[in-house]
């Protein structure tokens, strides 16, 4: 019987994610110019910012999906992160022709790895996200929140020290989102997690460190965070005050009529 409480223990020494002197143009627009940025090892780093500023592009650079024009992307020693990271996008990206369990094991299937104990681990992960009963169903039968939980299980199945999340919970309803945030915090704790979001509350709840990305070329600016237990409670007065402050700070960019 697999250990359901910790189907995926955190890695021993997760790496830092570091971008040094990174420049990138998309078309004629400079998105980043000599950008230096680091996501600390083993904690959640959140990136907030207006649409189109380059949040997703930053994650794609780290994931190696978009090559930088100049500079290095890697760990603290500049070594590439390929093979050490898992990707979770805004869309759940569940393949509609595979069952939920097969989707969770997709990485092993794509790499042609033996799947003897993978099946058992996938089931344990599905159980820990509350989807054990739906393992053999097609994704289309799942609700939006369930689909994101399956995507989270697939991300964990990869068991990588670095996890990149691109607005992972923005497509689900607010209540399901709170649950998913708690689940992600519990399951991904101890890894180097870099996530982008346009929801200040999500950044406040999950981020050990939070940056606002703004300008063209874009620059990250750290913002102060309230103390207290992590993940922070959405109804904590300090969190609500910080939330209001972030909204005021972002307002010129986001609240244009």
């Amino acid at each position: 019987m697999p250990d359901v409480s910790a189907p995926c223990p955190p890695p021993a020494a997760p790496p830092e994610v570091r971008l040094s002197g990174v420049s990138l143009r998309l078309g004629r627009e400079p998105v980043f110019d000599s950008l230096d940025f680091a996501a600390a090892p083993g904690v959640f780093t959140g990136i907030l910012g207006p649409s189109g500023v380059g949040k997703t592009t930053l994650l794609r650079l780290v994931a190696g999906l978009t090559p930088a024009d100049a500079g290095t992307v890697g760990d603290a020693d500049g070594r590439p992160l390929a093979g050490r990271l898992a990707w979770m996008a805004q869309k759940d990206l569940l393949l509609p022709w595979l069952t939920v369990a097969e989707n969770v094991r997709l990485g092993a299937r794509l790499r042609g790895e033996a799947t003897a104990d993978a099946a058992e681990r996938a089931m344990a992960l599905l159980a820990s996200v509350g989807l054990a009963e739906r393992a053999d169903d097609l994704p289309e039968t799942l609700s939006g929140g369930m689909r994101q939980r399956a995507a989270l299980a697939r991300t964990l199945m990869e068991d990588r020290p670095v996890v990149l999340m691109d607005e992972p919970f923005s497509a689900v309803d607010p209540l399901a989102r709170l649950g998913l945030q708690n689940l992600a915090a519990r399951m991904l704790a101890g890894r180097t997690v870099l996530f982008v979001t346009h929801d200040p509350m999500e950044a406040l709840r999950l981020g050990h460190r939070v940056f606002v990305l703004a300008g063209a070329p874009a620059r990250p600016t750290p913002i102060g965070l309230p103390g207290g237990a992590w993940p922070r409670a959405a109804d904590d007065p300090a969190v609500l005050a910080a939330h209001a402050a972030i909204l005021r700070a972002l307002a010129p960019a986001e609240a244009a009529p």
Binding site: R60, A63, G64, L65, A82, G83, L85, A86, W87, A89, K91, L93, L95, L106, G107, R109, L110, R111, G112, E158, L164
Partner: peptide, 18 residues
């Protein structure tokens, strides 16, 4: 769907497996 291809790339899938 380019999202599927991105996911496969981050899972280190080869051209044939993809």
């Amino acid at each position: 769907d380019p999202g599927f291809l991105d996911l496969a790339a981050t899972m280190n899938a080869g051209r044939w497996a993809t």
